[in-house]
Design a protein around this nucleic acid. Structure first.
Lengths: 231, 231
DNA sequence: CACTCCTTTACACAACCTTTACGTTGGCTT
DNA sequence: AAGCCAACGTAAAGGTTGTGTAAAGGAGTG
């Protein structure tokens, strides 16, 4: 079960969030003091931490900094409206996402789900995986770090390989641009960042050299998809 | 099975690491005291040791120094963020790699795998091997310690011979620069160290004297590769 | 001190990733 | 249906990083 720790001095807000998240099946705990929150956070007993920037006793950014000395636990920052500076500093310190107050519970749950899903994706990457995967005319050989199209070897750069491997290992599922960026490029997707699009474009060109029919589909606003099976 | 010993006083961290490594199929044991750790480490019962630099009772670097009197067991150092001095001293004392806290479990597993793979490569080198290997127009005669190109003897230095032998014995696979440096040059690859590149360059020139077609391929960011088989 | 070999230095270049710019698409509003 | 706009496709330019290699430097040997 996913367990969430919320560190926020606004008791009414934590109670509201508690109701929503417990309704959604999350284990939830809230504390209202910075130092107490840090201790709990360092215990690694939670899958996700909701962290208010404005805290009595200890600033949220300071807390995050200290937490990052010990733990990579995902952190979703909560801050006063549009405080762009906090946002930038927070993301630099390793927060996973940012949500401005006031937020709707619906939006909070959506962000939480996105983070949890990505963490699961990452953990899945660490599991032993099939060393060879076949998707239609594409064949992945991860031992040799090569991908073939109908027995032709694709000449891919390291980044292109990582992206295509991800798509192949999740063939049939949509892979979001945010996930692709974090897992293959190692950075969060920024507004107006088109580099992932370019990589996709280049991969498509290289595949099309050998098989015009094998296509990476675009799902506008959602991500990319490699269809598998008979069509 | 690969068994790993972790020496770190942070109990929560060792438990976290334990979960991840056991999930990945490693045998794992953790101790939280320096002296106890040294005793266990000296037993040679482990394939790899994760060693924290900051330890109560006995400093990690001191421990490493004493361990190296008895054992060549691979050591991966764990240290506070960016403590460059510890890093340098540690690597000089014979640590195999270095990881700054906090690290992601994913990164830890990747480093562990890299070390284990290299150790296996070294052990493989020590096994009895085929005394002659043929790769396209290249022929290795390890009894004579010579390499021929289409019946022409290559005049190679000791280092060049070792590098080319490694590439030939792993023809078809990428051999990383890190591995080549450690196995053929006997030292870790440092940033801006170009000596391996020079050896490769010289080997290429000598091969090209006799066969323009026989090429050592470069895989940017990965290593070098000697392609084998019909083309 | 001549010789060989390994390493370092320095510069050029190529491969790669990202950004820019502009064209296209598809969903949504009016 | 027309118009709008954000998301996407991609060519080309820009910037960064890794690699190739000549030449100089250093270390060891006889």
């Amino acid at each position: 079960m996913t367990s969430i720790l919320m560190i926020d001095d606004d008791v009414a807000l934590t109670q509201l969030v508690a109701e929503y998240l417990q309704l959604d099946g999350y284990q939830f705990k809230a504390v209202h003091q910075g130092p107490e929150g840090l201790e709990l956070a360092k215990s690694n007993a939670f899958n996700l931490i909701l962290l208010d920037i404005m805290l009595p006793g200890m600033d949220g950014l300071t807390l995050l900094k200290q937490l990052r000395q010990h733990s990579y636990c995902p952190v979703l920052m909560l801050t006063a409206r549009g405080d762009e500076i906090d946002r930038v500093v927070g993301l630099e310190l390793g927060a996973d996402d940012y949500l401005a107050k006031p937020f709707s519970p619906r939006e909070l749950v959506a962000r939480i789900k996105a983070i949890v899903r990505r963490v699961e994706l990452i953990q899945q990457q660490q599991q032993p995986q099939l060393s060879t995967v076949q998707v239609n005319s594409l064949r992945l050989d991860s031992a040799k770090r090569q991908i073939f199209v109908q027995d032709n070897t694709l000449i891919l750069t390291a980044t292109e390989y990582q992206i295509l491997e991800l798509l192949m290992r999740h063939a049939g599922d949509v892979v979001s641009k945010e996930d692709l960026s974090q897992l293959a490029l190692g950075k969060r997707l920024q507004l107006y960042d088109r580099s992932l699009d370019m990589h996709i474009s280049n991969i498509r060109k290289k595949i099309a050299q050998y098989d015009e029919g094998e296509k990476i589909q675009t799902l506008r606003g959602l991500g990319y998809l490699l269809l598998k099976g008979e069509h």
